[in-house]
Amino acid sequence: MASSTIDKSKPYFPLAGGADDGWSTEDEATATCFCGAVQLSFPTHGPGYVGSFICNCSDCHKLTASVHATNFTVYDTHLKHLRGRDNLKTYSQSRTVFVKTPGKDNTMTNYFCSTCGSLMYRVGAAFPGMSILRVGSVDDFSLHETKLRPTMEQFTKDRVAWKAPTEGAKQFVEDGLHVQ
């Protein structure tokens, strides 16, 4: 079936990876790694949902092996580990694009599935109490176009020239997450 014929206003769970038990409701949905060993649930709107954004920073280029990342942020108090928490491995570093004050803790920690390598989320000193998840890990693909559609695009200075600005998203030359 061509994507143009899919009703993206309704839940849509295409074959994607090794798991087939993802779900979504009006208020909550799942994100699963490629092999299915790790599954999270998260709110799809407030109070636990913070927002969705495109990031073109150099960290996201390298971490995703792509030219940008499509992310969303939730409060840690609302992120649930449904399975596989013990299967997550971490990689942390403090040399990131979010250094604002020399000497300040700037560690970003990445949580990967140890079986398939899928990045499930990031936590950082610059984002206390929040986790940054990847929209691509969300099981219900209709949410990619609806509730998780990015409202902001940051580090546009590092966006590749052939990628147009994200339609409808507020544009930031650098860090848009810490702008008041």
Rank of each mutant, 00 (worst) to 15 (best):
Val123Asp: 15
Pro150Asn: 06
Val99Glu: 15
Val135Ser: 01
Val135Tyr: 09
Arg159Tyr: 01
Arg95Met: 11
Lys163Gly: 02
Phe141Ile: 02
Thr156Met: 10
Asn110Phe: 00
Thr96Ala: 04
Cys116Val: 08
Val123Gln: 15
Cys116Leu: 11
Ser114Asn: 15
Phe127Gly: 07
Pro128Trp: 11
Asp140Pro: 02
Thr101Lys: 13
Arg159Lys: 13
Gln93His: 07
Phe155Met: 10
Arg159Trp: 05
Asp139Trp: 01
Asp139Lys: 02
Ser131Val: 02
Lys157Ser: 07
His144Pro: 03
His144Gln: 05
Leu143Lys: 06
Ala125Thr: 10
Lys157Ala: 14
Lys147Thr: 05
Ser142Gln: 12
Cys116Thr: 02
Cys116Pro: 04
Met120Lys: 10
Lys104Met: 13
Arg122Asp: 12
Gly129Asn: 08
Gly124Asp: 14
Lys147Ser: 06
Val123Glu: 15
Thr151Val: 07
Asp105His: 08
Ile132Ser: 07
Arg122Tyr: 00
Leu148Ala: 04
Arg134Cys: 05
Val99Ala: 10
Gly117Asp: 12
Tyr111Glu: 15
Arg122Met: 11
Val138Ser: 04
Gly117Glu: 12
Arg149Asn: 06
Leu119His: 11
Pro128Cys: 01
Ala161His: 09
Ser131Lys: 09
Ser114Gly: 15
Cys116Trp: 04
Lys147Leu: 07
Asn106Ile: 06
Met152Ala: 04
Asp140Asn: 13
Phe112Ala: 13
Asp158Thr: 06
Phe112Asn: 14
Ser94Ala: 12
Met130Val: 01
Trp162Met: 11
Leu119Gln: 14
Tyr121Lys: 14
Val123Asn: 12
Gln154Ile: 03
Ile132Tyr: 00
Gly103Met: 04
Thr156Phe: 02
Arg122Lys: 15
Ser137Pro: 00
Pro128Ala: 01
Ser142Pro: 08
Thr151Phe: 01
Val97Ser: 12
Met108Thr: 13
Gly124Lys: 12
Ser137Asn: 10
Asp158Lys: 09
Lys163Trp: 06
Gly103Asn: 13
Met130Tyr: 02
Met108Leu: 13
Gly103Lys: 04
Leu119Ile: 08
Phe98Val: 08
Phe98Lys: 14
Thr146Leu: 08
Trp162Ser: 07
Thr109Asn: 14
Cys113Gln: 11
Lys147Pro: 02
Ser137Phe: 00
Arg95Tyr: 03
Pro102Ala: 13
Lys104Arg: 14
